[in-house]
């Protein structure tokens, strides 16, 4: 399955938007946190998990998804949220903890919920699996269209929720796809040290479902394999397990000194940055001109600037709003 020209440009645009968004967040994150880094201080307090480098996974999968389809994301959700069409302004405001945020500041960056596009998060490793399978079951029971994608990290496959949900989804033949973003590191412990198999696609055999491993953080290949899996799910043929080799260009969280990385590891990563690579390929393949891509980048930057300005200018929530929305 190959992406159309429009899909390619959509993918590129969303990768760029995600990167520009996270660059802005990264910069603002350190406001008020220097010279002494204290996570509780600054414009954006709390933990911050950035996804730069992992954008191809989000766009390669979400290029096939419609608004009605469901995505559950992780503690590192921005690229997935952007690719699923989550409201960027309200997401930015949520990350800033503002009243205008998606949940009025109650959730922050690890708890992004946008029911308009069926997007939800959990900050707990592997725990998006069950809800995604349940949403898929809901569509089957209601005879309504829709597939559910659970994005997880490679560390999450060692959680019970992964095994339980893969089995459940397979035995019920649900329209469910598990996409593992293999960025090789669970905080500071490498995949090699934590995981008994080199590639998690082999685990698909345990559930009698197709498994794929995609090398090279390549949005074209991801689009291809994800497209097959999603078509299969839409046709009622059940779940698929996909693992994608990707890279975390930043640390696990902002402020992570990354002392655990072997020396020189990141040099290679930045050379493999998927965004300039895709840009070069789009031009080489004749899918876009320099000017057209420049225009996309300008547009993305403007969208990001607008979202960040919205977040900055929004009011803080009233403190006592903390006591509301516990129940429906």
């Amino acid at each position: 399955m190959s992406p159309s020209r429009d899909e390619l440009l959509w993918m590129y645009e969303n990768m760029v938007t995600s990167r520009r968004f996270e660059e802005a967040i990264a910069k603002i994150y350190f406001e008020g946190k220097t010279p002494v880094f204290n996570m509780a201080n600054g414009t954006i307090p709390g933990e911050m998990h950035l996804s730069d480098g992992q954008e191809p996974v989000a766009v390669g999968v979400c290029a096939h998804l419609k608004e009605e389809d469901i995505v559950t994301a992780t503690h590192r959700p921005h690229h997935q949220a952007i690719a699923k069409g989550v409201d960027l302004k309200r997401m930015a405001a949520e990350i800033f903890g503002k009243k205008t945020g998606l949940s009025g500041g109650r959730g922050g960056h690890m708890h992004i919920f946008d029911p308009d596009v069926n997007f939800a998060c959990s900050g707990i490793i592997g725990q998006g699996m069950g809800p995604a399978a349940g949403a898929a079951l809901s569509r089957v029971l209601q005879k309504k269209p829709g597939v559910a994608v659970a994005f997880i990290g490679e560390g999450a496959v060692n959680q019970g929720a992964f095994h339980e949900t893969m089995n459940l989804a397979a035995v019920w033949k649900l329209p469910f796809i598990c996409v593992i973003e293999d960025n090789a590191w669970g905080i500071s412990v490498s995949k090699r040290e934590s995981t008994a198999v080199e590639r998690n696609d082999v685990r698909a055999a345990a559930y009698g479902v197709p498994g794929h491993y995609i090398e090279g953080n390549d949005p074209y290949k991801i689009y291809d394999i994800a497209g097959e899996a999603i078509a299969r799910a839409r046709a009622g043929e059940g779940p698929t397990l996909i693992e994608v080799e990707t890279y975390r260009l930043a640390g696990h969280f902002m402020g992570d000194a990354e002392g655990y990385r072997p020396e020189g590891e990141k040099d290679g990563l930045f050379e493999a940055d998927p965004i300039p690579k895709m840009r070069a390929r789009l031009i080489a393949d004749g899918d876009a001109t320099e000017a057209a891509l420049d225009e996309i980048e300008t547009k993305s930057q403007a969208r990001v600037d607008e979202a960040i300005a919205f977040a900055r200018e929004s009011d803080d929530p009233a403190p006592e709003d903390a006591l509301t929305s516990v129940f429906a």
Binding site: I70, T72, P115, N118, A120, Q127, M129, G130, P131, A132, A133, G134, A135, A136, L137, S138, R139, L141, Q142, A148, G160, A161, E164, T165, N167, L168, V171
Partner: peptide, 27 residues
């Protein structure tokens, strides 16, 4: 389908109930 036996997988089926409930069902 509606009186549904599950595997012995409470994490999966309770998590699934959360997802189904958020999607409009009443599990």
């Amino acid at each position: 389908d509606r009186i549904r036996d599950t595997p012995i997988s409470e994490t999966a089926f309770i998590g699934a109930a959360v997802g189904a409930a958020m999607d409009g069902m009443r599990p």
